[in-house]
Design a protein around this nucleic acid. Sequence first.
RNA 1: CGGGGCGUAGCGCAGUCCGGUAGCGCAUCUGGUUUGGGACCAGAGGGCCGAAGGUUCGAAUCCUUUCGCCCCGACCA
Length: 569
Amino acid sequence: MKLSKYILPTLKEDPSDAFVTSHKLMIRAGLVRKETAGTYAYLPFGLKALRKISDIVRDEMDKTGAMECLMPELTSADLWKESGRWDKMGPIMFQIKDRNALEYALGPTHEEAFTNMIRSTITSYKELPVNVYQINTKFRDEIRPRFGVIRSKEFIMKDAYSFDIDQAGLDVSYDKMAEAYTNIFKRCGLTTIPVKADTGDMGGSASEEFMVASEVGEETLLLCDKCGYRANQERASHKRNSSKKTETPCAMEEVSTPDIKTIEQLSEFFSCDASSFLKSIIYIADGEPVMAIVAGDREVNDVKLKNHLKCVNLDLADDRTIFEVTGAPVGFAGPAGNDKIRKIFDLDIKNTVNAITGANKKDIHFKNVNPGKDFIISEEADIISSNEGDKCPDCSSEMYVKKGLEVGHIFKLGYKYTEAMNVTVLDQNGKTVHPIMGCYGIGVTRTLAAVIEQHNDENGLKWPISVAPYQVHLVGLGKGEDELTKIEEIYNLLIKSGLDVLYDDRKLSPGIKFANADLIGLPVRVTIGKNYFNDNKIEITVRKNSEKSETSKENLINSVKSILESIDK
RNA sequence: CGGGGCGUAGCGCAGUCCGGUAGCGCAUCUGGUUUGGGACCAGAGGGCCGAAGGUUCGAAUCCUUUCGCCCCGACCA
């Protein structure tokens, strides 16, 4: 491809609306253009990289025996109503009507579509297991799209769904996907961390996320290097201290705490550590108020609480509700002397001694509050988030925290959809059974952004060869007809050898061409200039490490190919 | 949805406080000189100042409304 005829709108300056590296570079290097918030147009250069990624995904998926399909984007509301997600996922879906007022959703995911397809095509255990997938656009009405293509309203995803006759089969299908994912991300030049994750609204049992360590990551991971424990903060747990404090329990008494509400203010007022308090947070779980009680230095983990309550909606209660159920304004709630509300106690609470907590009266706290004496631990669960420094649940050594960007997610879904949508096959005994499902996603467009997050420097992109839009960047620095013809010869030579070449044939000064080559970051740069016209010397530069070498026209192809082979090793 | 910031040429920005009919850099086009790390000279094109309404003799600038974009939060297979 000749650059003079190529749409590659590179930018010298960072676009004003981009904040993260990948977003800036994707725009500066001419991969994408923003259409509006959360939607991007892929230009030729960006699409080429995207294709490289989807080709890798497709290749590895096909190797596992999975079959590529293509589901409609316009999905009937009936499908969603059947699974119960029309209302449940409502806000995230773009729900639309046709002229006859029939309802549709632009697919935010395709469990229903695939399940429906399988329902009408598979009838016997002999046909199982199957794994079907697609690489297709997803539409999600994100509350806040951000970071370029990392969180957008429209993005490309590879989603796969496995159907097995039993749990043992699902385990095999799941493991195959885990392996394929490891291969896929490795081939894309990404270092990923597989972590245990929450299954969220998807339901199901096991779930792993493939995370790329990144400052722009939206997830917090808890990691233990000693035993390899890796979990998303949403579901990470930690080993608790099992022993009770040795202090002698004292009698509970009221303390006047005018206008002192936050844990911070309380710590100062009582001059003691945040952990001495019982923090009582009021939530509304599917319309019912509940109180979550955790140590003052801890945060309630909404996901864990939601899972424990098995509720669909969990929100912080508004001020009025808080007043109604505690008899006090925000800041004075506590488990002691309040029997009206369902209370969930964190696992640590039973070991507290002489704690301080709200008295359910304005401007009053209790001190020397003790479980068993001043309140009963009616319901106990792990409802706090684990933090840096907490002890690993498996080996008790200290865990640390890293930010992660989710590029892939695999689930053991279970029977949720096959039951809800009544998918059945006949088993060996001629009995009607539901197949068991797994589902497996990869954010393809997000993976592209992740690759760029991991491969760049101050001058621009540094493509791994596997996803580079072109392998070779040919920079021609020729003047007259003669010289230009000689460069053209080299260009043709490179192309004939099967290499994918971008030839900068523009009439621009060398500085611009070099800066541009660095920006768009193709793995190998071949420079044809006066050294070639005078001494038959061709310069090869490796973008990744700036290593330069010289070769002749005769050895060019071999040199380039051997460099390409060695670079990413 | 809450809090903050911003919409002026393709891109990055100044001008807005203090009203007088729009400017800088880069990019683009023409001609010429240049050519191994973002060259130079001369010339040219390009903007209803996000939109609507209002105040005024006169609005990019003041007032009202509205739309959009970015950041933080809530949200998030």
